[in-house]
């Protein structure tokens, strides 16, 4: 039987994001109007728009309750607090942009590199799949889950921007206190996008629990850009939280991949 040494039959908790959401919801609740109900919906607001799927419908509902101007204002407000942004997810998105802006190698430039297996677009997709709203189910999600991920993009930004992982009383942290979260994370040998979700969850917990994290990259024989972006995001989050993340014993392949993307400095890895 495949089970880990603790006899845990569940590899990760898909509901871990709920604690984060709860913390955020508490502040969001203050803005809610408790008396509001479905009756408040303006029936013609659903309008004649062709609704092909659930996502479009929910977008319609969202737009009814939150005018575009307010939505934009909220996002801008959240973005203005970017310095206090502390989630890995946010930093991933930031890195998706910054990698391109910094002139990171294109797919063609990467050529036949065996170590960098996914192009930047794949990695960006991986970052979307890392949305905590989906609880970490990553590459195995069905079509519905994937479309939900895309459709909630704006909301997830608004939610995640407000999350403070350093808050000691977060439920999701409490939920994991019984489990031993080691400050040292061992990276596996082959780090492909299929597994980035698991690492993402592990790093989030680790970052919440420890001030110093060591990531052992000695076994890495292949790593894709999704993983590299995750590590960059982790470094940035840790810096914001005044925590320290060190990548120790990087394997030659790890160094090579980081070098290809110009991430050696960001990851503080020396060849």
């Amino acid at each position: 039987m495949a089970a880990n040494k603790d006899n845990n039959l569940i590899g990760y908790d898909p509901l871990a994001w709920l604690g984060l959401e709860t913390a955020d919801a508490e502040s969001a609740d203050e803005q809610l109007q408790p008396e509001a109900s479905a009756n408040d919906l303006q029936t013609d607001e659903f309008g004649a728009d062709s609704i092909d799927n659930f996502e479009e419908l929910t977008e319609d509902i969202t737009s009814i309750e939150m005018p575009v101007e307010d939505n934009e204002a909220e996002i801008k407000n959240n973005m203005s607090n970017a310095d206090s942004v502390t989630t890995i997810d946010d930093a991933i998105d930031t890195e998706n942009i910054s990698l391109e802006e910094q002139g990171a190698p294109t797919e063609d430039e990467l050529g036949d590199s065996e170590t960098v297996t996914d192009d930047l677009m794949d990695a960006a997709h991986g970052a979307v799949a890392d949305d905590p709203m989906d609880g970490g189910g990553r590459a195995t999600h069905g079509a519905v889950a994937e479309t939900e991920d895309v459709s909630i993009d704006v909301e997830s930004i608004a939610i995640e921007e407000n999350i403070d992982v350093s808050e000691e009383n977060n439920d999701w942290v409490d939920a994991m206190t019984e489990q031993e979260i080691s400050p040292m994370v061992d990276l596996g040998a082959t780090l492909t996008i299929q597994h980035v979700g698991e690492l993402h969850e592990k790093l989030k917990l680790c970052l919440a629990m420890h001030d110093q994290i060591e990531i052992n990259a000695s076994d890495v024989s292949a790593i894709d850009t999704a993983h590299l972006q995750l590590l960059v995001a982790l470094k940035k989050d840790a810096a914001n939280l005044q925590k320290q993340v060190s990548i120790i014993y990087p394997s030659p392949r790890f160094v090579e991949s980081a070098q290809l993307l110009g991430l050696l400095d960001l990851l503080e890895v020396t060849p």
Partner: peptide, 14 residues
């Protein structure tokens, strides 16, 4: 997990 995400979206919208 997916259902809760859906429900929370509705809660926010409504």
């Amino acid at each position: 997990s997916h259902l809760m995400a859906t429900i929370k979206r509705f809660e926010k919208a409504l």
